[in-house]
Design a protein around this nucleic acid. Sequence first.
DNA 1: GCAAGCCTGACC
DNA 2: GGTCAGGCTTGC
Length: 291
Amino acid sequence: MPELPEVETVAQGLRRRALGRRIASVEVRHASVIGGSAEEFATTLATRKLANVLRKGKAIAVELTSENGSPPRFLLVRLGMTGQLTVAPHEAPIELHTHVIMALDDGREELRFRDIRRFGRLRSLTAQELEKVFGALGPDAQRVTEQEFQAAMRRRKGAIKSWLMNQNLVAGLGNIYADEALFEARIHPLSQPGRVSADRARLLFKSVRKVLGRAVNLGGTTFSDYMDLEGRPGAFLNKLRVYQHTGEPCRRCGHAIRRIVIAGRSSHFCPRCQPRPRAVAKMRGPRKTAK
DNA sequence: GCAAGCCTGACC
DNA sequence: GGTCAGGCTTGC
């Protein structure tokens, strides 16, 4: 499940393996993964050079320059849940669910986009369009300042777990790292952001940084599908403390990890280390979403 | 039947 | 405007 650390790892792979290379041709095998027209996607990207790799939250934008002096375009990559970007030799067998193939340079290597569940998207954007997409996202979770972070929490109601996952406020966290950061900061996932003390908010800010930084260093988390550009899994899986550890003893206190559903997403936490705030206790427990 | 990111749309 | 449910998609 690509969140910031997995997406950053892919971005680093792109910088290492694809920067400076030219897209010789673009083949769209399954048009539904292209936001907009597949023909336009292919024609606007072909013959351009990969000049720069940007990332904000879970979105990657590759700046593509043209030799004829026309304005740059941006390849926006959203991996969704199961999206994979790989550089492969032309003769490597094309795996099932490979939706887009971009031949690089002389065509001996290709940049391939594969996505089993097709929640991911590739788009070809102008600079203005990219600005709009990036502008809608909150500050990147690795670059957000403590002041911005705390300001974004102010007066917010609802569960802090949902707040952490809202990309318009702080961009980059998904279900895994939201649970891990809340555990690290000892905050109950149903706490209201606006009611968390300044000290605790500061701790959460630091925990987000800490968890993401460690995960980036280990190349992210791989459950099943996530792979980096070279096809390697991430190594953060066995560093997870609460995510998908329901019923197992907490690594800090030994109490069994609990799982509840918040806004349709499973949330894992230690009931002892992350005590329920009083305001939430009045609500008679987590709202169970009928499934 | 369930997981997930992201978008749309309904509700207050 | 904020908050949340629903739907997309496929493999287990």
